[in-house]
Structure formats: structure tokens, C-alpha cells
Design a protein around this nucleic acid. Structure first.
Lengths: 111, 111
DNA sequence: TTGACATGCAACCATATGGTTGCCTATTAT
DNA sequence: ATAATAGGCAACCATATGGTTGCATGTCAA
């Protein structure tokens, strides 16, 4: 079996929707919930939730497991962590220098 | 003047597009580029790039500055940093416990 | 001053996206 | 056995999104 690696783009797009982020939050609060449990209290049909979970699963943010007629959903934080590592970290470096650099460049342009 | 704060959703959505992330990468490599400069070598019209930059600006990921007929674009890494802090960090906590917790919950269900 | 350059604005278009409804299948409990 | 429960599948729909073309405006240089 060859592992399937979702692209970073897939992960970003999966995280772009507020409903999906809310589902991840729910799983973060309590892992291993069934589809019906995840639907509870949401202003959305079960089928809509199914689609969202499908997208999260495709992005490897959620792993599922059938247990009888139930489908259990587990959060996989690894892709989120990778985005933090590979993408967000590098933009943090110039956080402190950003403003001063802006000023510097402005002055340069006005020479 | 009252500061406008973009929602976290706006930032996530802005980051969801690969072209926009590429623009941020370009600004990260060299800050303060003009619109034309940012268009160079991209398989997209200037107007498409303008729209992307508008979305990035609305999400406060890019700040602009008119200098004569040119518009200079500066990266603002703060919202990216905030996403890292407020959203990504909390999912990293249970990284190590995720697998063991899965096993534990499975066993519990089989009792 | 006038042409070239940098950008802005608006209409338009195809496809992606988030959601719905309707129906079907599999499993569990009475 | 059979009804209720949990979930799957597919068609459909409205709107959002990412892109285009065409034209207008402001600024700089010869």
C-alpha cells in the first residue's frame, strides 16, 4: 500500500471554511464522535456535514473508523502542524523588522 | 479613526488560494514591490493579480502605499502569526496523545 | 505637451462551492 | 421479524470565486 499525501493546498482549502473549522474544534473538544453527534445543534443537514467531513478526510485532517453502523471521526493534527512548520513559521521571522523595513524602503525611494 | 480588524475567517479564506500564497511568498522574498513587478512571469492578467492583492489587503495581509503612479505592496505577517498563535497552536497539544487516545477509545467501545 | 506607462473600474463568464431534497442500504434493538 | 437508527449516494440549485476583456484615469519622461 502506497500512502496518499494530500497537498498543502488541499489542507489550506479545507481549513478555509468556518463550518469545517468548527467541526475540527468539536473533535478537538471530544475526539471520536459519530456523524450524528457531529450534526447535533448545527444549522445544516446531515448530508452537508457529511460533505464537509469528506473534505476534511481527503485533506487528512480527519480519520474515520467504522464501528458497526456508526462512523467514528478522529482529528489528525499532523497536517495543521505541518502548515505551522512549513508555511507560517517563515513569515514570523520578519515580524519585528517589517515596520522598520517599510520605513527604510520609503526613505530610500524618496532619495 | 477606528481601526478595522479583519476576521480570522477572512484571513483563512485569503490564504486558501495558491496564487495568493505565491504573492505573499514573492513579497516575503522582496518586500515593497509594485503591481507590475508582482505580475511579472505570472500566467494571469494584471487585473486578476489586482483582485488577489485586494483580497490580501482586505485581510490585512498586505499593506499598500502609493508612490507617484506606482503602488507599493508590503507584507504584513501579523495576521499569519495570529493564526499560528490562536488556531494552530491549540491543535498541536494533542499531537502526541492522538494515537494512544484513539486506541483507548476503541477499546472502550468494544467493552 | 503628448505619448507611454502604472493602475483603476466595471461588466461579463465558466466553474467551484456549500447547501438542499429524495431515496437507498446496513445495522441494531424490541 | 421488523421498525427505528446510522449512514451513503446522486441529482439539483444558488451563489461565490477566479478569471477575462475593454476602457478610463493619473503620472512621468522626452
Amino acid at each position: 500500500m502506497v500512502a496518499y499525501y494530500p497537498t498543502m493546498d488541499e489542507v489550506f482549502r479545507a481549513l478555509a471554511d468556518a463550518s469545517r473549522r468548527a467541526l475540527l474544534d468539536r473533535l478537538h473538544a471530544r475526539n471520536g464522535q459519530t456523524l450524528s453527534e457531529l450534526c447535533d445543534g448545527l444549522a445544516m443537514t446531515r448530508q452537508a456535514v457529511t460533505k464537509h467531513l469528506g473534505i476534511l478526510e481527503a485533506a487528512n485532517l480527519v480519520t474515520t473508523l467504522r464501528h458497526g453502523r456508526e462512523k467514528l471521526h478522529y482529528l489528525n493534527p499532523v497536517p495543521i502542524h505541518q502548515i505551522g512548520e512549513r508555511w507560517i513559521r517563515k513569515f514570523e521571522r520578519n515580524k519585528l523588522t517589517a515596520l522598520s523595513e517599510l520605513k527604510r524602503q520609503l526613505e530610500k525611494r524618496d532619495e
